[in-house]
Structures are given as C-alpha cells and as structure tokens.
Design a binder for these strands. Sequence first.
DNA 1: GAAGTTCTGTGCGGTATCGAACATAGGGGT
DNA 2: ACCCCTATGTTCGATACCGCACAGAACTTC
Lengths: 250, 250
Amino acid sequence: MASPHDPRQNHLLAALPASDYARLLPDLELIAMPLGWAVYESGGHMGFLYFPTTSIVSLLYVMENGAAAEIALTGNDGLVGVSLFMGGESTPSRAVVQSSGSCYRLPARTLKKEFALGGALQHLALRYTQALITQMAQTAVCNRHHALDQQLCRWLLLSLDRLAGDELLMTQELIANMLGVRREGVTEAAGHLQEAGLIRYSRGHIKVLDRSGLEKRACECYAVVKKEMDRLLPYEVSRLLTGGASHAAH
Amino acid sequence: MASPHDPRQNHLLAALPASDYARLLPDLELIAMPLGWAVYESGGHMGFLYFPTTSIVSLLYVMENGAAAEIALTGNDGLVGVSLFMGGESTPSRAVVQSSGSCYRLPARTLKKEFALGGALQHLALRYTQALITQMAQTAVCNRHHALDQQLCRWLLLSLDRLAGDELLMTQELIANMLGVRREGVTEAAGHLQEAGLIRYSRGHIKVLDRSGLEKRACECYAVVKKEMDRLLPYEVSRLLTGGASHAAH
DNA sequence: GAAGTTCTGTGCGGTATCGAACATAGGGGT
DNA sequence: ACCCCTATGTTCGATACCGCACAGAACTTC
C-alpha cells in the first residue's frame, strides 16, 4: 500500500499515467483535514482542487433558514472543487470535512493549465463529475421517495466505502444534518438498525456489524450510484498497474 | 427574432463565436420534439447532443418501483446529453419532452471533435453543466425541505422561463409525475394557487396570471437557480449582438 | 347528442416526519 | 469523586403527504 502518505491513495491521482502524474507531483501539497472544516463556503473563492486520501468531504446545501442537506459525498474516489475546471469558479454549496484525515491539494492555476491540455486529468475529472451528477440525482430522488431507515443505510454504506475499517465517528446530530432530517429521526432509525444487529452505536462511534445486511436494507439508490461509479471510474485497473491492492472487491 | 427556425434561438449556440458556430452549422439538424418523446432512455445509447429551441426537456430518474422524479429542466437555455462530452456516454436518467417544440441536434462525433478543440463550445458546455449541477442540487434540497405548494410554484416558473407566452400545456397528472408526488396533491396545490389568483387552470391549460405572485410564493430554490444560471451563462450579451430581444428582465 | 374517455375535485384513514419538551446517561476535566 | 456537557432515548400532538375510492365535469368520438 506504499507509504501512509501517498497521493496515489486517491483513485483519480492513481489513475493518471506516470508522465501526467509527474507533472502535477511538485505542486501537490499534503494537508490535514480536521473534522468540520469548511473546505469551501457557498459562493466563496476556491484556491485549490482537493484530492482526499483518508478524509471524507460532504457537499451540502445550506438554505436561508439554516436547514441543510447533503447532496454528495467524496472520499479517495474523487475530488472536491469541480467548479474550478467547469468554469464557474464557485458554487452555491458548501464542502465540509465529514471525517477527518488527509488530503492532497493542487493550486487552481496548476489545475487549469493541466486541464487545458486535454489529457488524462481532464478526462478523469470530467468522468468523476458525471459520477457526481449521478450521485446528486439519486440523492434528489431518494429524498423524495425513500424512508429514513433506508436513507440511513445508504449513507452509512457510502461513508463506509470511503473509509478504512468498519467504524465511523459521527454523532447522530451530524448525520441528521447531512440527511436533512431531525436528530430524533436518526435516533429512531439507528435504533432499528441496532435492534436488527446491523450496527452498534455508542456516543459518536458507529461500528458496522453486518455490512451485507445494511446493503439489503438500503434503498436501490446505493447500488445504482456504486454501479455507475464503477462504470465511469474503474480505478482498479490502474491500481493493479501501480502495485495496488485488491482485484477482489465484490 | 430572426427566423422561426434559427439554431441561435438556443442560447448556447447563440453564444458561440461566428467561426465556431460556422463549423457546427452544417451538422446541425432541425427536428421536432413531440410531447412525451424519450430523447434518451436510462442507460441507453446517445447518438446526438440536443439543443432545444422552443421545446422543453425534463431529466428524470425512474426508480425500480416505477416512481419517478424530475431532477432538472432544460429549454433553450441549455443542452441535453451532457454525458456525451463528460465521457460517460450514458446516464441512468431519462430525458423526456415535457413541452413540444423544436430542437437542433448535433451528431455525437461532431460534438466530440469540437469539444476536444477546447474552444468556446467546450467552455460553454462545461459551464452549462455546472448550472445543471446547481439545479439538481437545489432540487434535492427542495424535495427534502419544501412544501408542495412552493415546489409547484418553482416548477411553474422554471417552465415558464423556457417558454414563450404565459401559458403551459400540462395536466396535473404529468406535473405530479415530474415532482414525484400524487396527482391529488397537485390538484390541491394548484387549487391554492388558483384561489390566490396566481394561475388559471383548466384541463391541461395553465395560464399564469400573476408571475411575480408566483415568485413570492415559490421557495428560494427558484431564485437561487436562476441567479446561478445567469451568473454562469450571461447569454444576454450575445443575444444583443445577434439582434435579440430584451435587456430588460429584472 | 349520446357514449366514452380524460382530466379534475373531494373525502376518507394511514403513516412518516416534524417541532418541542424532557429524561437519562456516558465521559472528560478538575 | 464530582460536575458538567454532550450525546442519546422517549414522549406528545400537529402536519403533510400517501393510497385508495369515487364523483363530477369537460372534451372527443361517433
């Protein structure tokens, strides 16, 4: 798995051909992502493109009345700051660190220069953006049609996929904020999952006991997004080339 | 307003510099968009990129159980088929003609060649895609937090903006399908708006009587999306150059 | 103009989530 | 060991939407 701090822990960076990667490497800066840090604010200036490695970042919309909802989740499978290369420079959403860890970032200028070359980075970034679109669309539908229990399963799985291990640090309050529901609702839904023996919950520590049980209980949204993600960014291939880990998976 | 069939009725095409436009023109094909036609199906092959002029296209997600929800709306302000240039070739969503009219389309091959040049079309297409992302994100939040009455206002306004005139042809059944709610719910919400004197409803004909009243009643989502759209694609400029209509608006 | 079809209005009970208030409990700091 | 703060659990009525069933009304067809 190489060093604990390897930019190639990020799947997009890992998928770059050696020459493209070499061009970016000097400008890649390792930074720590503390829990709760706003990587960028709604409408704010964005100086960097972020490639999470061990951290997870939530994209969320905050409304005038303060209510919020998560629209997408990014971990080492993607990047944060899509609007930098899409041309808008900013978005009306916030990006918040949902699980602390580390991350590499690239100055906006370097990114734009590389993107303009029309090479592998452009290709990957756009494909990732499409995957992000899928995730957002599915979130919209899920918000409309699915029960909280199912949405919680989906969310736990999405987070789990972007973490090592089977435990997340996350209070019910925070989860509620992500899902755009009341905290009490999460308490209840989490209670159901605990009774069913799928998770164990304790003051901000969630241990997943039965992952496949969660998958069965989740709505289709999780599977759809995962499948589309794998279709658009079959990073496994490149990880094999770079001496990465598993072919296995599912 | 030029001819009734002018590709430049589409704002993106209108915003292209003359030389870029000239390159595309020979391959632009005018087609009719009949109500209900599926421009593309979920996961299906996409042979063309579509530039609506007088038609409106809904992007919607259909779920396993048949329930659906609209995630975005495109008219002469945009294009349909984002995944053609994002690299995915298909998406898990459907695109359906929601208001009949006409449209120009460009073969996928031409599009990709032009996109690869990195010129104005690439720039505009990506900016439009970001605007689409905003619309989708806002839809997700709106689904979660806002009452049906407000969502209906938002939807009417979004449609109105993409049509000439103040009347839409659309049954409550269809609107319900777009919004992902029951038809009876739409009946009730539309009743409220009618009582308030904002619209007049009659068997598939909706006449908007008080547009600014609708705007006041709509949730913030409409304004946010519109503002972001204008920020990203200030097409007015180019329409002025081509002899287009209003500077006015608001 | 009669019959049929489509669109709209309405009334029911059922359920999920909301909003608010309060009870308990784990865990860290001093 | 104590206190306090944060996290979790539980209750209540209120509300918005669902699913279903059916009535009426307006166009269409013949």
